[in-house]
Design a protein around this nucleic acid. Structure first.
Length: 715
RNA sequence: GCGCUCUUAGCUCAGUUGGUUAGAGCGUCCGCCUCACACGCGGAAGGUCGCAAGUUCGAAUCUUGCAGAGCGCACCA
């Protein structure tokens, strides 16, 4: 018996050594598996694209959970003989990454991005992204992820950029991408547009002011943002509101806080007569709803009174003031003019930017949009329908199932997708202008063309992930062989951001689904159930955890009993528990290998031993079904229970007198049984605890492959 | 407002299509250095499965109502 078994199991030295051996073998690459004869060339395929972690720093426990789950499916399928591909990659995460660097530069050098310029900023971000990438790759390997590194991709590398430009052009040519002046969510802090889903609403108490524009204006109006009223072009009332009927269609002039305004009273059924005074002051340039109402009544959109820095642009006392200051000044003015009628507290959901925390200012901007309610040429369906159909029909299966309802509900409410961002890091909008001419897709030859300044929403490129990673738009063998992918595993929090967009992009581009099953894991929280965050200091770093307890222990702790779609709690105590389990397995192996050294693996089994073998065969079947049906939390628990409480507590204990006894036939039978059970246990446990099982397997007399990663899954 | 989920042992959670005395981990209590393992072994206590009604031969599991917790979407000026 190897000497290593005389020491307690030491995961830290073992795990890094084993991963190096795996990498050297090349067997994470399915082509190499075929070449080495461990996988049939025509075997069915199984593929997963790793959700690319953002290059914004380090991985957290949520990533560790994702890796554990995906690696379990990958290793299981590989052992079952599938041509198994798991592609790694990272995401440039446009806004998130740029804002990390901008903050850093601001703090260290006191400069903003305009002080540095586009080129210099991108250089700095590039350096950071590279460092961050290296850290992440190291973490992925530490967790034991059996990724095919030869196929690694980055959402912003040349191949993926080419894919992005190609899809953009195709969508543009199909009439599904348009440019238009719309009210967008402007983040004054991040100096960019953000999408509806990047908004977080915070409930606050605000003042609701009831006022009149002037002494002779007949309708009182309620507002929480008096400063915007200098940009008003009208007042809307409900068509049936008896109080205001007589004023509909009338026009008024006033000078509001030094600013001359012209107001038209219109009737619109969107107005709720019960709220406030039942009359809405219309500020089309600074409110989405007002924009729409103004649209319907052909009122001007042109009156802009707030700029990108959330400062007032009107002449007079408000000029250059921040909106918050201007608000107080307008209220003062209303009071002094005797125009303020009421001031009351009201609850308000204020829109803030998820990434920067800035208060979102609705502004009209020229932006690029993907139109979701227009028929896609040749498909007879809109993008929205193409996103809904596969989920409704079950062509795409979501685990847990109830998220299908959430998904459908969300898509049904989907509006056009604003894809342009006013930041520099990312895929630059592939559109070039020269006077009235525009060119889309690739840069045109010739003089005088200038490219659009904006970049694309990061989800535009991650939406292509399942096929851009396989070489599209080239018609590669990989694409033909591994797409659609089998599983997409990610947190339920990006169901809409990412899953929905992948379905949209893939349906449009390839006319197929991107994946057959979506497995959604929950959030990983701390022992008290709080979200892990830097500010709380309750983060567990997967690297620290692996160093302390081993990646195997961390993986088990994350997986056992953790049902899909449900948040879980993790603590060092829990992980410690599974590091003890690893040690238990180590000791089981020591005992079996020690006491069965010359076991004859062909000796007949006694009746009792045959039964014990049948028991693990039943367990194998159950476990296999559990994994196939995505109940890995249960498969893991069953293996834990079997190993400790059946194999160790019962079978090994009962074996001691047999092995020490005088009945040579019983002894031989039991020795064979123990070796066989250990062999099975290692194989069944391998997807969950890859390192320790591989390490023990290397000492097994039952080895039928060089490495456990490609050993056969038992029947 | 629309939608989704949860409520099971002190704590954290399982319980697959309704079927025998409801499970695990951690914790608690008692006893053990037994020649694989003290990162261990043996044993014990602990639950009217949120509440109420219904369907059923049978409900933690299905239906309805109520109470509490969480989440998503939309959003009123």
């Amino acid at each position: 018996m190897p000497e290593k078994f005389l020491q307690p199991y030491d995961p830290t030295t073992t795990e890094s050594r084993i991963y190096t051996e795996w990498e050297k073998s090349g067997l994470f690459n399915p082509d190499e598996c075929v070449k080495q004869g461990v996988t049939q060339a025509d075997a069915p395929t199984y593929s997963i694209m790793l959700p690319p972690p953002n290059v914004t720093g380090r991985l957290h426990m949520g990533h560790a959970l994702m890796l554990a789950i995906e690696d379990i499916f990958i290793r299981y399928k590989r052992m079952r003989g599938f041509r198994t591909l798991w592609v790694p990659g990272t995401d440039h995460a446009a806004i998130a990454t740029q804002s990390v660097i901008e903050k850093q530069i601001k703090k260290e050098e006191g400069k903003n991005r305009h002080d540095l310029g586009r080129e210099e900023l991108l250089k700095r971000i590039g350096t950071f992204a590279t460092e961050s990438h290296d850290t992440i790759v190291n973490q992925l390997k530490t967790m034991g992820a059996s990724l095919d590194w030869s196929r690694e991709a980055f959402t912003l590398d040349d191949k993926r950029s080419h894919a992005v430009r190609t899809v953009f052009k195709q969508m543009f040519d199909a009439g599904l991408i348009y440019r238009g002046l719309r009210i967008v969510n402007w983040d004054p802090k991040g100096q960019t547009t953000i999408s509806d889903d990047e908004i977080v609403y915070e409930e606050r108490v605000a003042k609701l002011y009831t006022f009149r524009y002037s002494k002779d204006f007949p309708i009182p109006v309620a507002t929480t943002r008096p400063e915007t009223k200098v940009g008003d072009v009208g007042v809307a009332v409900h068509p049936d509101d008896a109080r205001y009927k007589e004023f509909i269609g009338k026009e008024y002039d006033a000078v509001f806080c030094d600013v001359p305004i012209h107001l038209t009273v219109v009737a619109d059924k969107e107005v709720d007569p019960a709220f406030g005074t039942g009359a809405v002051g219309l500020t089309p340039a600074h409110s989405k709803i007002d924009w729409d109402i103004a649209d319907r009544h052909e009122l001007s959109h042109e009156v802009i009174v707030i700029n990108e820095y959330a400062k007032m642009t009107v002449a007079g006392r408000l000029e250059g003031k921040k909106t918050t200051e201007a608000r107080d000044m307008v209220v003062e003015w209303l009071k002094s003019e005797g125009l303020l009628e009421k001031e009351e507290d009201t609850k308000q959901n204020i829109a803030t930017a998820e990434r920067t925390g800035g208060i979102v200012e609705p502004l009209p901007k020229m932006q690029w949009f993907v139109e979701v309610n227009k028929e896609v040429p040749g498909r007879g369906k809109t993008l929205k329908e193409l996103m809904l159909d596969p989920v409704r029909s079950g062509t795409i299966n979501i685990v847990p199932e109830h998220f299908e309802k959430t998904y459908v509900h969300w898509i049904e409410n989907l509006r056009d997708w604003c894809i342009s961002r006013q930041i520099w890091y990312g895929h630059r909008v592939p559109v070039w202008y020269k006077g009235e001419e525009i060119a889309v897709g690739e840069e045109p030859s010739g003089e005088g063309w200038t490219q659009d300044e904006d970049t694309l929403d990061t989800w535009f490129s991650s939406g292509l992930w399942t096929f851009s990673t396989l070489g599209w738009p080239e018609q590669t063998e990989d694409l033909a062989r591994y797409h659609p992918t089998d599983l997409l595993e990610t947190g339920y929090d990006i169901l809409f951001f990412w899953i929905a967009r992948m379905i949209l992009m893939t349906e449009f581009t390839l006319g197929t689904i991107p994946f057959k099953t979506v497995y959604l894991h929950g959030l990983v929280r701390d022992a008290q159930g709080r979200k892990m965050s830097k500010s709380l200091g309750n983060n567990l770093d997967p690297l620290d955890v692996a160093a302390k307890f081993g990646a195997d222990a961390a993986r088990m702790a994350l997986v056992v009993g953790n049902t899909p779609g449900t948040d879980m709690r993790i603590s060092e105590e829990k992980i410690r528990g599974y590091s003890r389990f690893a040690n238990k397995l180590w000791n089981i192996s020591r005992f079996i290998l020690e006491s069965t050294q010359n076991a004859d693996l062909d000796t007949p089994l006694s009746a009792e031993d045959t039964e014990l073998l049948a028991a693990i065969e039943t367990l194998t079947k159950e476990m296999t079904t559990d994994i196939e049906e995505f109940r890995i939390y249960m498969a893991a628990e069953k293996m834990y229970h079997y190993t400790w409480h059946e194999l160790a507590d019962k079978i090994i204990e009962e074996s001691k007198p047999i092995l020490a006894g005088s009945d040579a036939i019983a002894r031989a039978s039991r020795a064979r049984l123990l070796v066989t059970l250990l062999d099975r246990t290692l194989r069944l446990l391998h997807p969950f605890m890859p390192f320790i099982t591989e390490e023990i397997y290397q000492s097994m007399p039952t080895k039928d492959s060089k490495l456990l990663i490609v050993a056969k899954w038992p029947k």
